[in-house]
């Protein structure tokens, strides 16, 4: 593992001290979470999370646990971004739909009154 990045915020996680068991520390890859968030929230940010998540195992397999942790954290971050954007956009979309339906109803009433 490289020690050239003393200020790397990802290098001082609790996994740093995880016991080395043959294959090194296990890094969560968040792949399942990424796919679920992509399927359920339909936001392209989920694709970013999937790509980062898939990188985790590749990097861990060649011993780059530093990089694996970075990808893992990125995958987690993009999962949350995708989830929150999905929920916010859905609420916004529903509000806009209600406004359009309401405006159409008001217009209809006005026309009926004439």
């Amino acid at each position: 593992m490289s020690s050239g990045m003393p200020n790397n915020p990802y290098s001082s996680g609790p996994l740093q001290n995880a016991p080395m068991s043959g294959m090194g520390p296990t890094v969560p890859n968040y792949l399942v979470q990424s796919i679920l968030v992509t399927i359920c929230c339909c936001i392209p940010f989920g694709i970013v999370a999937i790509v980062y998540a898939a990188q985790v195992n590749s990097k861990a397999a060649v011993g780059d646990f530093e990089g694996a942790r970075t990808s893992s954290n990125n995958a987690k971050k993009w999962c949350w971004i995708a989830l929150i954007t999905g929920i916010v956009l859905n609420i916004l979309g529903t509000v806009v739909q209600f406004l359009i339906v309401g405006a159409a109803a008001v217009q209809q009433q006005g026309m009926n009154g004439m």
């Binding site: 890859n29 792949l31 399942v32 796919i35 992509t38 399927i39 694709i47 999937i50 790509v51 998540a53 898939a54 985790v56 195992n57 590749s58 397999a61």
Partner: peptide, 20 residues
């Protein structure tokens, strides 16, 4: 275990993205 290594991880990722 769904993901056992790099290959299955990328396979799963490309399955979902490719399907989309």
């Amino acid at each position: 275990q769904l993901v056992t290594g790099p290959k299955s991880a990328w396979a799963l990722a490309f399955l979902v993205i490719g399907f989309g």
